[in-house]
Amino acid sequence: MSEPVDDAAAAAAEQVAKEAARRRRLAEVFGEVLPEAADEPAAQRRDDQWYLDNRPPHHE
């Protein structure tokens, strides 16, 4: 006998396949516009002194 198929797992797998197909179609039409992950590190919190130290000369 075969084991019963888990409907939730099958539905999840189908959703993943649909999403992958959608991404492939978008990439075919528009190309890879943005990478999946950011290349730049997360934004750092800067205090006022950093901005004063890095102020351009024409703003003094």
Rank of each mutant, 00 (worst) to 15 (best):
E60V: 01
Y51H: 04
Q15H: 05
A10E: 12
A21K: 14
A17G: 04
E14A: 15
A27P: 00
A9G: 05
A9L: 11
V16T: 10
A9S: 12
A38K: 14
S2N: 01
H58K: 07
A42I: 04
A9K: 15
P56Q: 03
E19N: 15
A27G: 01
A11L: 09
Q44T: 08
R22E: 15
V16W: 03
E40I: 10
P41N: 11
P41G: 09
A42Y: 08
V33E: 15
A11Q: 12
E32N: 15
H59A: 08
E3K: 07
R24G: 04
D7E: 06
H58F: 13
L26M: 15
E40F: 11
E14Q: 14
A27M: 08
R24E: 13
Q49N: 10
L52H: 06
R46H: 14
A43N: 11
A21G: 04
W50Y: 15
Q15L: 13
A21L: 14
Y51M: 02
R45M: 11
H58S: 06
K18P: 00
V33C: 13
D53H: 07
R23P: 00
A17W: 05
R45G: 04
W50H: 10
R55V: 06
D53W: 02
R22H: 10
E19C: 10
L52Y: 08
E19S: 13
D48R: 11
Q44N: 07
G31T: 10
A38Y: 07
L52S: 02
A20H: 08
P41L: 08
A43F: 09
A38G: 10
F30G: 05
L26I: 14
F30L: 14
A13T: 09
E28A: 13
D53C: 01
E19D: 14
V33Y: 09
E60K: 11
D47M: 02
L34P: 02
P4L: 01
P4A: 01
V16D: 06
S2W: 05
M1D: 06
A20V: 12
E40K: 07
A12D: 04
P41A: 13
V33K: 15
P4K: 05
A11E: 12
Q15Y: 06
E32C: 08
D48P: 00
E60T: 00
V16E: 12
A9H: 07
E40C: 10
R24Y: 06
D48M: 10
E28V: 01
H59N: 07
A17E: 08
W50S: 01
E60I: 00
H58R: 04
K18E: 05
P56N: 06
A42F: 05
H58L: 01
E40V: 09
L26T: 10
A10M: 06
V29W: 04
L26R: 15
D47T: 04
D48H: 11
A38F: 09
D39C: 02
P57Y: 03
V5S: 04
A17R: 10
A43S: 09
A13C: 00
G31A: 09
A8N: 07
H59F: 06
F30P: 01
